[in-house]
Amino acid sequence: MISLTSPVRTRAHGWPVGAKLAGLCIASTGLFMVQGIWFHAAALAVVAALYALPGRAFLRAGLSALRVLVPFLVLVMAWHVLTGSTLTGIEVNLRMLTLVALANLVTMTTRLDDLVGMLHRLTAPLRRMGLSTQMLELGVPLVVRFTPVLIGKAGQLSQAWRARARSRPGWRILLPLSLQALDDADHVAEALRARSAPD
């Protein structure tokens, strides 16, 4: 759900990933501890200003990444309006939007291998216990790589369906899509084997 790339290079790209994640952690904790609709409105305004700083292209990419939140915002608002707590609903939504926007800001301005490197350091205790964290570190870039590929395949299947049918495919492409995903997994496994040595 979170966009991982920025269309432009920002100053924040050069900041150490640890500092950005620590900042995100402190800001998130603060947002949960402090109540008050005006505080959260102000926090959101600050985050919006951060998005606007690197320029229009960045702002647009950032906002489009947040669009996936809209159904959740609508759902939360509807629930609170129905239960007669509209103000709480506004506050919850403001907080959610600010939190996700901040997290998104960190991923947009951080290179993936820096994030994975951080993950590697954070999971050091697991390795000391004898667990391999290699799969975890490999899994993150694989998800980022294959999410657009799968979306593209779903689009192709849907087109193949519509080319010979009057109805929209809907859930009926899920099975062939899963099979294609398994097929892709085979190919990735082969590609990994072609360039990596077993431990």
Partner: peptide, 10 residues
């Protein structure tokens, strides 16, 4: 079927 990572450098 060959590219494993999301960016060229990786």
């Amino acid at each position: 079927h060959q590219i494993i990572f999301p960016t060229v450098c990786e």
